[in-house]
Simulated scan of single mutants.
Amino acid sequence: MVRVVVADDEGLVRAGVRAILDSAKDIEVVAEAEDGLLAVEMIRRHRPDVVLLDVRMPNLSGLDAISGIRAISPDTAVIVLTTFLEDDYIAGALHDGALGFMLKAADPRELIDGVRAVADGAAYLSPRVARRVIAGLGAGRMNREAAARKRVAGLTTRERELLGLLVAGLSNAEVGRRMHLAEGTVKSYVSAILSRLEVRNRVQAAIIGHEAGLAPQEPSSS
């Protein structure tokens, strides 16, 4: 019998997933959780074979819960079940140890097959997710972009705006004119960005900004 915990902040979703899984004679839903912290506690208490995690939950997101779950119950296979088909979520989940990534819009049979697969130690991706992963495999693009976005998220709004101008190849003087800053202030901003991103020069910073999808901002109206 495959024992499963279902974690989602929407009661109707949990009820629907339970109904689907209960229709399989070899699968048993042993607990439900409406947030990430409770999901971790249910894993600790029940030690299930599989946990289905929503990405966005209160208190602790599904992605943030993966590492904790892997630490307290390494034999529990994690499937992320979400409506959000985003590269950052896919790369983050798989990097942290999830064996499955599925969409809530998937066919009910697919959900059962996915639970069985990860319980047996295999990986399982919804077909649309698999296509995104394959498309992102070239030169590790998906992982690089996810990592770049994570690093850029630590910058202030003003720093991200300035980094976008570095991506465009603007000099300090041109950045100063665009953002109405003294050139010395621009240099201070650039130094802070290099420090926060932990890179040596503005070229490396611009590469990270490009991979994070930062685009130059339009000139501000005076």
Rank of each mutant, 00 (worst) to 15 (best):
A91Q: 11
E110P: 01
I79D: 05
S73P: 08
A106H: 07
E28L: 07
P48E: 08
R109D: 12
A139P: 03
F101Q: 03
R116S: 01
E145D: 03
T185A: 15
T82M: 06
R158K: 14
E198V: 08
G169N: 07
L60K: 13
P108V: 03
A65W: 13
V175R: 04
L12T: 14
D35W: 03
V4Y: 03
K25S: 14
K150H: 09
G164Y: 03
G154S: 08
L163Q: 06
V118S: 03
R14Q: 05
L12V: 15
T76G: 10
R144S: 05
A168E: 03
R128W: 00
L38T: 11
V133I: 14
R177Y: 02
H210Q: 09
T83S: 14
G114F: 07
A182W: 05
V2R: 06
T185H: 11
G36M: 01
V167H: 07
K187S: 14
H180Q: 12
D64E: 08
L194I: 06
E161F: 04
R141G: 01
A119S: 15
L170T: 00
L21F: 10
D87A: 14
N172D: 14
L52C: 13
F84I: 04
E34D: 15
Y189M: 08
L165F: 00
A117W: 00
E34L: 04
I193W: 08
L94T: 01
L162R: 06
G140W: 07
I20Y: 01
R116A: 00
G11S: 12
R160Y: 03
A146I: 04
L21P: 12
A33G: 11
T83A: 15
E10I: 06
N59C: 01
V190G: 03
V80M: 12
H46M: 10
R196F: 03
A135S: 13
Y89Q: 04
P216F: 05
G92K: 12
A192N: 10
S171P: 01
A105D: 15
G100N: 06
E174N: 02
R196D: 09
G121C: 07
G176F: 02
Q217I: 08
D64I: 01
N143R: 12
S220L: 14
G140Q: 14
A212W: 09
D35Q: 11
R70A: 13
E161L: 12
I27H: 10
G62C: 02
E145W: 04
L155V: 09
